[in-house]
Amino acid sequence: MSTDRPQDRFEALLEQHRGIVGKVAGLYCHHAEDRRDLAQEIRAQLWRSFPRYDSARPFATWMYRVALNVAISFARNASARGRHFPARGGEDLEGLAERDDGEHEGAGPQGLDRVLFLQRFLEGQGELDRALLLLYMEEHSYRAIAEVLGISETNVATKLSRLKLRLRRDALHIEQRDARGEPAKDGGRRWNSTN
């Protein structure tokens, strides 16, 4: 296979970073069909934008920009058209987690609850904060996050510290609810925090 053709180069790069499409699509859509549509839309837009990609710069950063832009637009369009992506569907991450529980070490009840807590926490944030958190958890530097989002590094730091406060507040709320023995309002599991 020749790597001189743009299509081959694109496919090779996409294959190397294919996880990004799945992560972004999964973060903004939870129904399988919506997720497939969004992933397809992201791949199509990546291909359309590929001629503008500057190979001197990291492909992953470029890919995050395109993928996040498409995903946020997709979510906002759906919301403007009166269509809201449900937080949980029949084939969501929780369902997948329940099916493959035990296959992976460290995904016991406590680990699972943390993952679900993270999933709920992400779902509760606005589209832009979700993008910020994704990049933060993917270990991008403040500078890289600022570049992808188009805000200043100071702004990134401020927003992350606000998100930390929000996270602590939500975690405390769940701990208090668990301590009182109340069921989760959303029917979800409890978070068995040891903190």
Binding site: L93, L160, K164, L167
Partner: peptide
């Protein structure tokens, strides 16, 4: 609960998202 602690949970969530993809 800290934001950094969620990074470990993110590893697991990421694995599931990849499986979904």
């Amino acid at each position: 609960m800290e934001l950094d602690e969620l990074k470990s949970a993110w590893g697991e969530l990421e694995r599931r998202l990849s499986a979904l993809e």
